[in-house]
């Protein structure tokens, strides 16, 4: 039985990764399980300079999910390279760094630095809904995604994955832009913009008023978008959005994802990611699947 995948040029022992912003730089979860059991780790969104993040409250629970507005709090790329990467490299799992910025120059600078780092790939965060300048602004149009991705592609030789926002009318357009600009893969979906109001104070729960919705609540939206994108582009898809077990992961792979990410699921149970690996293997045994790559895009539409 083979669970190994080659996603966008990144060799992984299984298709399960953990989504940016839900796993830090890995240390906290290593007290629960051996990180080498994961296909890969996608780091917290990392910028050229440290970022403090947004004012609290930053999160709130919603039906089958959660809203967050963290605001990309992170210690900056230099700190990551000095203090977190050396440790992360010893964990025997693929390391993909989520790179974020406020301007095109920010993205280019951070990727220039990452190009010389001992990492397996970069996920370009063009879709964080909680940062006013940049991010979502670049991620919502064909032109925006193409411009940033092209500029980054010029300075980055490593595998480049572009993370797409679902907060658009037609997600295949930014997906196509990423492909046209030379990205090796796309990841989707980032969070859906949402809002939740405390009826007693009449104020939104989040200090930022709005935030990104994630968790099982968004899964059908994510599956639909992965399917749509898989029909529109030829580069591989990292699928995510409410995956909490092996069956959910298989659903995304049938829809067209070559690999998957666990996000909010890590908060429900710290073992969700490794249990997803086990669940995929159980599905393979039960359905006599020799190679996990066989099922990618094998949904049979009605």
């Amino acid at each position: 039985m083979n669970t190994e995948v080659n996603f966008a040029g990144i060799k992984m022992k299984n298709p399960v990764t953990v989504a940016s912003g839900t796993f830090g730089y890995g240390r906290e979860y290593s007290q629960f399980f051996d990180l080498s059991r994961l296909g890969g780790i996608i780091t917290k969104g990392t910028s050229i300079k440290p970022r403090d993040g947004n004012k609290p409250s930053r999160i709130c629970e919603t039906p089958s999910g959660m809203l967050n507005s963290i605001g990309l709090q992170n210690p900056g790329v230099e700190y990551f390279l000095q203090y977190d990467l050396p440790w992360l490299k010893q964990q025997d799992t693929a390391v993909i760094v989520n790179a974020c910025g406020s301007t095109i120059e920010d993205y280019v600078e951070v990727c220039k630095i990452l190009n010389n780092a001992d990492i397996d790939g970069v996920e370009l965060n063009l879709s964080c809904p909680n940062v006013k300048a940049g991010c979502l602004a670049f991620g919502t149009t064909y032109e925006g995604v193409k411009e940033v991705t092209s500029r980054v592609r010029k300075v980055l030789d490593k595998p480049l994955i572009v993370k797409l926002t679902p907060n658009v009318t037609d997600i295949t357009l930014p997906a196509k832009a990423a492909e046209d600009a030379g990205a090796d893969g796309v990841s989707l979906i980032n969070t859906l913009l949402g809002m939740s109001i405390n009826i007693n104070t009449r104020k939104p729960y989040l200090a930022n008023n709005t935030g990104g919705l994630s968790g099982p609540a968004v899964r059908p939206v994510a599956v639909r978008m992965v399917y749509q994108v898989s029909q529109a582009i030829n580069i591989p898809i990292l699928g995510m959005g409410g995956i909490v077990n092996g069956n959910d992961a298989i659903e995304f792979m049938l829809a067209g994802a070559s690999a998957v990410s666990i996000g909010a699921g890590n908060f429900i149970d710290p073992y969700t990611s490794v249990n997803t690996v086990k669940g995929i293997e159980e599905y393979m045994i039960k359905n006599k699947i020799e190679d996990i790559n066989e099922i990618v895009g094998k949904v049979e539409m009605n």
Binding site: T22, E28, I59, Q73, N266
Partner: peptide
């Protein structure tokens, strides 16, 4: 969110 120092919520 996580209670572990990861989500920074």
């Amino acid at each position: 969110g996580c209670g572990l120092g990861v989500c920074l919520g």
